[in-house]
């Protein structure tokens, strides 16, 4: 929408947005539901405005990597389904989905949010490996933040399954009270620079007309665990400083929604 692409930065200069929101205002309602599917070890459904994503955790017992014989592992994968927007087609993940997967993965992994040592069942032989898949149901913009929140909520919701102590076959119908050892709550927030101003929680149209963006993964102690600069324009150190401030504040705002659920 070229005419809107012109309108977005020119409105931003006046601290205005096409949908009438404040620059640093999220769409409502923000909801975090957990335990929404029984087949997953942990699951969540996150809604930010009209953007909806579902995340699910699957766990399996596998041989640890040789360099970390006492640790389990994690893998995060984002799917932008053709169901969620006419922009996406079936097939292998496009760059946007890959970027979301990678940045959310770093946000969780580098924050050491999961105690991988506690996932070890038998040194050098068996440890729990955690896969989190986050799937877009409706992409009305800002799947990035929604995916990060959903992954965290699904991990927090996850419990381990029972397994046969002899054969180590996992009983996927069992439920245990043993939770996944999640120790922190890191969330990735993306701040966009549009018309020289900063905004959060972009709509699809805003995602198509920004100059630069910075994704900041941070935990409750405001320690940054992942950064990703995107967009075609460069940013200054002052920009980074301002964008990180916004991201830290918004991460704690989203964390409240996560803790409230």
């Amino acid at each position: 929408m070229i005419v809107n692409n012109k309108a977005i930065p020119s409105l931003a200069k006046k601290d205005m947005r096409l949908d009438g929101r404040g620059m640093l205002e999220y769409r409502g309602p923000i909801s975090v539901e957990t335990g929404i599917t029984v087949t997953a070890e942990g699951s969540s459904r996150v809604q930010i405005g009209d953007t909806i994503v579902i995340a699910g955790v699957k766990m399996s017992l596998e041989k640890p990597y040789p360099d970390t014989p006492e640790e389990g592992g994690i893998m995060i994968n984002a799917e932008l389904t053709p169901m969620s927007s006419s922009q996406y087609e079936s097939g292998p993940p496009r760059m946007k989905a890959i970027e979301i997967s990678r940045v959310v993965d770093r946000t969780i992994r580098e924050a050491k949010a999961i105690d991988f040592k506690k996932l070890c069942v038998k040194k050098n032989e068996l440890a729990w490996f955690v896969s989190v898949d986050v799937v877009s149901i409706n992409d009305a913009g800002n799947v990035f933040d929604a995916a990060s929140l959903a992954v965290l909520a699904a991990l927090n919701n996850a419990s381990l399954r029972d397994f046969d102590p002899e054969t180590f076959a996992v009983d996927y119908k069992s439920t245990t009270k043993k939770k996944l050892p999640l120790t922190k709550a890191p969330i990735a927030v993306t701040v966009y620079k549009v018309g020289g101003k900063f905004l959060v929680d972009p709509t699809t149209e805003e995602e198509n007309s920004y100059e630069a963006r910075l994704t900041v993964g941070s935990d409750a102690k405001q320690i940054i665990s992942a950064l990703q600069k995107g967009g075609s324009e460069p940013i200054t150190i002052d920009d980074v400083s301002a964008m990180v401030d916004i991201a830290l504040e918004k991460a704690s705002f989203l964390r409240k929604a996560y803790q409230k659920k």
């Binding site: 087949t39 070890e41 699910g56 699957k58 389904t81 896969s131 996927y172």
Partner: peptide, 19 residues
Amino acid sequence: CHYNMMPFSGTGTRIRPGT
């Protein structure tokens, strides 16, 4: 029509995405 199960939607291990 395009039928697809999410990776965590089956009883058992993760279903790899893809056709």
